[in-house]
Write a protein that binds this DNA or RNA. Structure first.
Lengths: 233, 233
DNA sequence: CTGTATATTAAGACGGCATTAAGACATCGC
DNA sequence: GCGATGTCTTAATGCCGTCTTAATATACAG
């Protein structure tokens, strides 16, 4: 999570280079795409955290890219466009864009708006509602700030996915989360196969978390629906 | 939840009126504040969904307002400012603002960015627990959000079909539901055989729900017609 | 009293779930 | 660049809970 992956969609090479060198200088990883088709492809295959999108692409309109991406993901999309007309902005924003910068843009402002987006992503992960940095439930503790979990004082060694999954359940304690909701939050997509993966993760997570994985204490299964973090004691 | 509450912080009366009339015209509710102090006060006491914040306030810097609000909440803050310098934008965004518009601004763009913010809020609260999500009748409680039912404080272990059936009856308390209606709601179909299944489910549900399944307290049978959830006490 | 509708019980079929293992993949250190 | 480590994906298997169906018992209405 320390080096966010950004997808830069821009056909103009100098501008693209400007952006990518800036990103590199500020400890981001990045992918690039020079047209709409490859943008959609890269977005779906690499699941970047944020998309920087130029609207003026050679093969399709940028707004179309937004629509395509939005059909299966709600990853943040920041538009960078030469079009400064209100109607363009509104169209892009209503299509699903999260922000809109007009060229020529300030590199510093772009970075600031990236930080805003990242901050929001982080808040989404840990649950913006409760400001507590530490979640506690029975013998389970999750330290969002430190990014680790403890059971009965001992640290749990969780993989990134297991940790995300646990956070998601914790932040929604008491609520049943559907399979599709969970997979969307974890991977930004939701096709049938992912439910199988989800089950595997749930198994490994439970093995680490539950004393008797056979009769789980913390994570309850709701058949045909999803999972739910129980309040303990 | 259909009419979001917006806090408008702006000392210049004409601008404030422009914003508020626009909001009113688009079915928003709003509060106003003309200085930083009352802005913080209104924000904390009324807990608006979104804050529209002018940076040029008479009593304190707008950035300070952001910091104060952010100390206890991460409600969305959209800055509207006459300052178009990069440094101002960056300072405000890094302080915790979610968006930054420069005056003179387009009303339509403001509305579009409000919609973006609302969309994001909605996504955040996918399974938001509203108080109405809990049905109560006598000792029976059904928590629709959590997807489970309680009798006298103890959780009932219901199968998916039993739970659906119970929900259907609860949501139509007092009304007699016909066999065909129930089977259609449960399985989307309604052939004769399903009534037999329905009876089996009703038996298992009653066994879990009623103290004396012989003389049911909650679910009444209407011979030749269907079933009905009774109001208890 | 008789026929019809409902309640109850049990048994088998079915499907979803947990679990395991193996291969693909990315990451990191050398 | 290359290998080692750890993680993710995919597929296969067995199990358990749930649903259906049928058979029997009970309540109700005419």
């Amino acid at each position: 999570m320390n080096k966010p992956l950004i997808l830069v969609v821009e056909d103009d090479t100098p501008v693209r280079n400007l952006i990518t060198t800036t990103l590199k200088a500020h400890d981001y990883r990045f992918l690039t795409a020079a047209n709409g088709e490859s943008a959609v492809l890269e977005a779906s295959s690499h699941n970047p955290e944020i998309i920087l999108l130029d609207l003026g692409l050679p093969d399709m309109d940028g707004v179309e890219v937004i629509h395509k991406v939005r059909s299966w993901s709600n990853m943040p999309i920041i538009v960078i466009s030469a079009r400064s007309e209100d109607t363009d902005k509104i169209e892009a924003l209503d299509a699903g864009a999260d922000d809109y910068l007009t060229k020529p843009f300030s590199v510093e402002e772009l970075l600031a708006r990236l930080r805003v987006t990242q901050r929001r992503l982080a808040a989404l992960q840990i649950g913006a509602v409760n400001a507590d940095a530490v979640f506690t439930n029975g013998k389970l503790k999750v330290d969002y700030a430190a990014g680790c979990a403890f059971l009965d004082g001992e640290e749990l060694h969780l993989t990134p996915s297991e940790y995300k999954l646990l956070c998601l359940l914790c932040k929604n304690m008491g609520k049943v989360l559907t399979h599709t909701f969970i997979t969307q939050q974890l991977w930004g997509r939701s096709w049938e196969n992912d439910v199988a993966s989800l089950r595997v993760f749930m198994a490994t997570l439970r093995k680490k978390l539950e004393k008797e994985p056979g009769s789980p204490q913390y994570i309850q299964t709701h058949i045909g629906v999803g999972y739910r973090m129980m309040k303990v004691e």
